[in-house]
Amino acid sequence: MTVAWVVLVLSGLMETAWAVALDRSQGFSRPVPSLIFVVTLVLSMIGLGYALKSIPVGTAYAVWVGIGAVGTTVVGMAWLGEPTSVARIACLVLVVAGVVGLKVFH
Rank of each mutant, 00 (worst) to 15 (best):
V70Q: 07
V86S: 08
L41Y: 09
V75C: 04
V86Y: 03
G12N: 07
G71M: 02
V74K: 00
T2K: 02
V39S: 04
A51S: 15
A4D: 15
L35Y: 03
P83I: 03
L35E: 04
G68L: 04
I89F: 07
L10W: 00
G76Y: 02
T2C: 02
V104D: 09
Y50V: 14
A62L: 09
R30Q: 11
K103P: 14
G58W: 14
V38N: 02
V3Q: 09
G12C: 09
L80T: 04
A60T: 10
V70S: 08
K53G: 15
I46F: 15
S11P: 06
G71A: 03
V20E: 00
L41K: 03
L22Y: 01
T73R: 05
T72C: 03
A19V: 13
G98I: 00
V6L: 13
A62W: 04
R88E: 05
H106S: 14
V75P: 04
G81W: 08
G81E: 02
G66Y: 03
S25A: 03
L94T: 08
A78P: 09
S85L: 07
V42C: 13
I89W: 01
A90F: 14
R24H: 02
L102C: 13
V20I: 12
T84F: 05
G66I: 04
V32S: 01
A78E: 10
V42F: 15
L92H: 05
V74R: 01
R88S: 10
A78Y: 06
L102R: 03
D23H: 00
V86G: 04
M1C: 04
G58P: 12
V42L: 15
I55H: 12
G12L: 05
G76K: 00
V86N: 06
S11T: 08
V75K: 00
G81S: 06
T2Q: 09
V70H: 04
